[in-house]
Simulated scan of single mutants.
Amino acid sequence: MELTGEIAAIRDGRGDPARLVGEFRRSVLLVPLADGPDGGLMSAVSGGIRWVYAFTDEEALARFASARGQADREWEFLSVLGARLVDAVVPMADGPAGVAVNVADEAGSMFFPPVAGIVPDASAVDLAAGEVA
């Protein structure tokens, strides 16, 4: 099953969290580039966590652009494996970070928070310093 199917299964209460995380790690996601002088990947901070935006396809990214009132501009993005986002990008963030997938899809979004089993142990907020899951 692809990532959107695994998200739907979890949201319906019939999914397997381990299968969801595995599919997320194997999926190629579209990550928009941030505008402005700092550049980088587009993200937002909420609840003290930096959430990197990622999308399962161009249609999901287009819905995000439309929700922001920016559907008429060109969106630059990178294609990145979910595993690369959590294993390489999250540890580089200043503070806790996770990945928000398809955030403009009310019934199809999913957050992958900075916890053990999703991000590297050193970046997991649910582990004490030096603790290993």
Rank of each mutant, 00 (worst) to 15 (best):
D87G: 11
A34K: 14
W51A: 01
F112P: 05
A129G: 02
A62K: 12
F24P: 00
I7K: 06
R11H: 11
V89K: 09
V125M: 12
M42G: 15
E58Y: 00
R68W: 04
P91M: 08
L20C: 02
I49L: 06
A54H: 02
V119Y: 01
V132K: 05
L33S: 08
V89D: 06
Y53T: 10
R84G: 10
V52A: 13
G69F: 00
A18E: 09
E106D: 13
R11W: 04
D35A: 14
P37C: 12
V28L: 13
A71N: 04
S109A: 14
V86M: 02
W75M: 14
F77D: 03
A107D: 12
V99L: 01
F55Q: 03
L85K: 11
G13D: 02
A128Y: 02
A71I: 11
R19T: 15
R26M: 07
A104P: 04
A122N: 11
A34G: 14
G22F: 01
I118D: 02
A83M: 12
L41I: 07
M1A: 14
A8M: 11
M42L: 15
D72K: 14
I10N: 03
G13T: 02
I118K: 03
V90M: 12
D126L: 01
A71D: 05
A93K: 08
L81P: 03
P32Y: 03
A34T: 15
R19I: 10
P91A: 08
F64V: 07
F64S: 06
S109I: 14
S79E: 10
L61C: 05
V125Q: 04
E6Q: 10
R26C: 11
E131Y: 01
R73E: 14
A44D: 00
A83G: 13
A122E: 09
V52R: 12
A71Q: 10
A65H: 01
G117Y: 06
G130M: 00
P114C: 05
P37S: 14
D105V: 15
E131P: 00
P120A: 04
S46G: 13
V31G: 05
A122L: 14
A9F: 00
L3F: 09
R73N: 08
A88P: 04
L78T: 08
D94Q: 14
G36F: 04
V52F: 10
F112W: 11
D121V: 07
V132H: 06
D87K: 09
F24K: 03
E2F: 07
R50K: 10
